[in-house]
Amino acid sequence: MGNIILKTTDLTKKYNNKAVVDNLNIEIRKGEIFGLLGPNGAGKSTTMNMICSIVRPTAGEIELLGKNPWKQKKEVIHKIGYIPQELAIHGNLKAWENVELFTSLYGIKGQELKKAVGDSLEYVGLLERKQEFAKNFSGGMKRRLNIACALGHNPELLIFDEPTVGIDPQSRNFILDKIKESNAKGATVIYTSHYMEEVEAICTRIAIMDNGKIIACGTSQELKKLVNSGHENITLEEVFLTLTGKKLRDYAE
């Protein structure tokens, strides 16, 4: 424990004068697997995008590895690996070409690049299928390839934005194991999801986000204690629903 990898101070993003991320303050320390839970539209992706300098914050500060990713992008951006929620791969490129293209964006070349591509593909279990076009992959394979494209440059901080949507339990467990493996090797991880079991299984600390705000933060044990239910074996899902309410989120309010 100790040094802070990421710190946001009153981070805010407004769309059409409506705060999608509202004065967000989080602190993530080296070596954590930090889970960000929240219903649809809570602002999880928007937060990640601001950290990765994709979406410009309306207000607030971000300190990423001691730098401001918007002002000192060059010094810090190569230290993050961002796995976007949507599949960001080229269907008309083969698996290895996708990884090569996106890894090369970090200035890696030649033999080093070749090795990085091989390692990343092996990591997600796609090395044998590297010659196949991404468009012919199954949903789970595309997800894994999507992850591989962000790993080649050996980032210190991995940001997974819902990496397990629409895939079977085998692939999901595979991905979760890999995340733990990376973490064991020293990478800090931010993981967003709305699958409670996943988050509970791998995250060292969890924040629950709703309407752009963090409404609770702590280990899963701490979160469970927050909610005073009658019975002992409260699940994280119950905690989540108690804290965020049962109303559907994508409805216009």
Binding site: H78, P84, L105
Partner: peptide
């Protein structure tokens, strides 16, 4: 493709 699949974001998160 770059637009449709958000590949531009990967460019954004790079040098």
């Amino acid at each position: 493709n770059e637009k449709k699949y958000g590949i531009v974001r990967r460019f954004r998160v790079s040098n």
